[in-house]
Amino acid sequence: MFGHHHPRCGTRGSRSFGPFNVEWSFDAPRGPRGGGYGGGRGRRMFDGGELRLVLLRLIADEPRHGYELIKAVEELTGGAYAPSPGTVYPTLTMLGEMGLTREQASDDTRKRFEVTPEGAMHLEENREQVEELIARLQAVGARRERADKAPIRRAMGNLRVALGHRLEKGEFSDDTLHDIAALIDEVAQKIERLR
């Protein structure tokens, strides 16, 4: 089971993972008190053997090499988080030493890894935790997506408020109203052309 002790990995719930720690690797959007997601920069994405389970799950989904695993995690989080090579490659070595993965035979110079029957059993034994970890990564991606849209929502709100106040006061002539409408139409056309 996941909680058993292994000579080169931390125990369940520990704050370190073997000889290294897994840290957030992005500047999270700041909340009203200046903190980012769950406390801001420096909060660990994974503790203990959690990254090991995530990588094992991704390898079980599809044989991959180290860079592909980094990109897969990054895609799950919408680009908000990517584990460093200095974290991923030692974890891959550990997975192999534990007999959970093996190198796939390939003509490619890069090592692709596949899950072993023992690895598949390990995932099944820890299925609930694995699903929670994947959900955590996807939640980070969802927060990132909402944060990315926030400036646009703010700008649209500013435009609506500014126009509303001025129109209520009746400060615009008919010519000025036509000029404002032309400006908004021009911006809309430029947005449609953006790629």
Score class of each variant (00 low, 15 high):
Pro83Ser: 01
Ala28Asp: 07
Met94Cys: 09
Ile180Leu: 13
Thr77Val: 06
Ala135Val: 07
Pro29Met: 07
Val161His: 08
Gly40Asp: 04
Arg41Tyr: 11
Ser84Glu: 14
Glu75Thr: 12
Lys169Glu: 10
Gly96Asn: 01
Ala60Ser: 10
Tyr81Cys: 04
Arg52Ala: 07
Arg30Met: 15
Cys9Lys: 08
Leu123Gln: 00
Asp47Tyr: 12
Ala105Leu: 10
Leu92Asn: 01
Gly42Cys: 04
Val187Asn: 07
Ala155Gly: 08
Gly164Arg: 08
Thr11Trp: 06
Glu75Leu: 10
Arg166Phe: 12
Arg153Glu: 13
Leu100Phe: 02
Gly40Lys: 02
Leu76Val: 05
Ala188Gln: 09
Glu75Tyr: 07
Leu76Ala: 01
Arg112Cys: 08
Cys9Phe: 11
Ala139His: 09
Pro90Asn: 00
Gly49Glu: 04
Thr109Trp: 13
Ala28Gly: 08
Leu123Asn: 01
Ala181Ser: 11
Asp174Trp: 05
Gly66Asn: 03
His65Met: 06
Glu192Pro: 07
His5Gly: 12
Pro151Met: 06
Val161Ala: 15
Leu133Gly: 04
Glu186Cys: 13
Leu58Glu: 00
Ala155Trp: 05
Lys149Leu: 15
Ile59Ala: 00
Asp61Cys: 08
Asp108Lys: 07
Asn158Met: 13
Ala188Leu: 10
Leu56Thr: 02
Lys190His: 10
Leu123Glu: 00
Leu163His: 03
Val73Arg: 00
Asp174Glu: 15
Glu68His: 01
Tyr81Lys: 04
Arg64His: 05
Arg143Ala: 15
Glu128Gly: 08
Gly38Glu: 13
Ile70Phe: 04
Pro83Leu: 05
Val22Lys: 03
Gly35Val: 14
Ala188Glu: 14
Thr109Phe: 15
Gly96Met: 04
Gly49Lys: 05
Gly79His: 00
Ala162Gly: 11
Met1Lys: 06
Gly96Asp: 01
Asn126His: 03
Pro29Tyr: 01
Cys9Arg: 11
His122Met: 11
Thr87Phe: 02
Pro32Thr: 13
Arg41Ala: 14
Arg15Trp: 10
Gly86Ile: 12
Gly42Tyr: 00
Gly48Phe: 04
Arg166Leu: 15
Ser173His: 04
Phe172Tyr: 06
Thr77Ser: 02
Arg64Thr: 03
Ser16Glu: 12
Asp108Trp: 06
Leu69Tyr: 00
Glu23Gln: 13
Arg57Glu: 06
Pro83Asn: 03
Pro19Glu: 10
Thr77Gly: 03
Val22Ser: 00
Arg33Tyr: 11
Tyr67Leu: 11
Glu97Asp: 09
Gly39Ser: 01
Arg146Lys: 13
Glu114Asn: 04
Pro151Gly: 04
Arg15Leu: 15
Cys9Pro: 09
Glu97Gln: 09
Leu56Asp: 00
Val54Trp: 01
Leu53Asn: 00
Asp185Trp: 04
Gly38Asp: 13
Pro151Lys: 02
Arg195Phe: 10
Arg195Ser: 15
Glu131Pro: 05
Asp27Tyr: 06
Ala60Glu: 07
Thr109Ala: 11
Val187Ala: 11
Trp24His: 11
Tyr89His: 09
Arg127Gly: 06
His178Leu: 15
Asp27Leu: 12
Tyr67Lys: 08
Thr101Ile: 07
Arg102Ser: 08
Ser14Met: 09
Glu62Lys: 07
Arg57Phe: 02
Pro19Trp: 07
